[in-house]
């Protein structure tokens, strides 16, 4: 028993310490930073009370709620958060629409082919993240065949030409492209476990193709749908590279806002506040997904 205990500490302590120092502590620092004052030129104002620029009496050790007040005082930030949610929702729905048929097909394919088909989903996703975004710069770019085709079609219909690249459309395409495998994999993992006997039973009882899908397959697959949704929605919410590369100047999302506070204007406290708001949004989303996934999985056999 003594030995077992020693073993326990021997293997759990090193990763624990590393993560406490390089994950837990930085997260706490970020929370504290959000309550501090920005420095005059960059970074942070010192903590000692005498150096504070705007030494209001309510200040406690150089801490303030100012950044949070600022966040809520300007509707611009609420708008960007809403826009990010809209982009994340749209990306998730498109991913679901594209992923479901493929996941279903793979799950119902011959066992020998399944691994290859899934590998074919993972492979493009293993290539560099920036390269996958960059590829769309070529495809949607002003010189591309697609751009020419779309614009000559528009001209035929008497409509003004459009720019595909640097548009909200390009951002959405990029988001879907980068995150699609995150939807396919959990869906496949779920669909693969379904018992085909249930579908046969439904057929014997006279259910048509649609009824079999909506009343047998779909309810059973909801846990997969919810975990895929979380895996797409959460990273899209914080993504800055896709709008940065494929979007126009007005296609700013939360991630771009945060990036600018740290590498552009250098207002660390406000950047931290934005990050915490993003974290809260993520926690709410993940909590919702977990909550939705749980009871339905158990109830699906009795309800609907």
């Amino acid at each position: 028993m003594q030995r077992r205990n020693m073993m326990k500490w021997l293997i759990s302590l090193p990763p624990m310490l590393f993560l406490l120092v390089f994950f837990a502590a930085p997260s706490l620092i970020m929370i504290v930073t959000s309550f501090r004052y920005p420095g005059e030129f960059s970074g942070l104002a010192p903590l000692s009370a005498s150096d504070i620029v705007s030494g209001a009496p309510s200040d406690l050790y150089g801490l303030t709620l100012e950044t949070y007040q600022f966040f809520f005082s300007d509707t611009l930030y609420a708008e960007i958060f809403l826009k990010s949610f809209a982009v994340a929702t749209a990306s998730t729905l498109i991913c679901l629409l594209l992923a479901y048929p493929l996941a279903l097909l793979i799950a119902r394919s011959d066992k020998r082919h399944r691994n290859l088909m899934i590998l074919l989903v993972i492979l493009p996703f293993a290539s560099n993240f920036l390269i996958r975004i960059y590829a769309w710069m070529i495809i949607l770019g002003p010189e591309s065949a697609l751009n020419h085709a779309v614009n000559s079609l528009l001209a035929l219909m008497g409509l003004p030409p459009v720019m595909l690249l640097f548009s909200p459309f390009a951002v959405l395409v990029g988001m879907v492209y980068v995150h699609l495998p995150f939807m396919i994999l959990p869906l496949y993992t779920n669909l693969e476990k379904h018992d085909p006997v249930l579908l046969d039973a439904a057929q014997d009882l006279g259910a048509n193709r649609w009824q079999r899908f909506w009343r047998v397959t779909w309810p059973q697959s909801l846990p997969g749908v919810f975990s895929g949704t979380a895996l797409v929605f959460i990273p899209v919410l914080g993504m800055f590279a896709v709008p940065d590369i494929l979007g126009g100047t007005s296609d700013i999302l939360i991630g771009n806002l945060i990036k600018d506070q740290f590498l552009g204007t250098r207002d660390w406290p406000f950047g931290s506040t934005l990050s915490i708001m993003l974290m809260l949004a993520v926690i709410v989303t993940a909590g919702l997904a977990a909550w939705l996934a749980r009871p339905r999985a158990a109830a699906s056999s009795t309800s609907t």
Partner: peptide, 14 residues
């Protein structure tokens, strides 16, 4: 599980 940007930013501050 969390957006990468959050880890990046908090480590930068740390």
């Amino acid at each position: 599980a969390m957006p990468e940007i959050l880890l990046g930013v908090s480590l930068l501050l740390f």
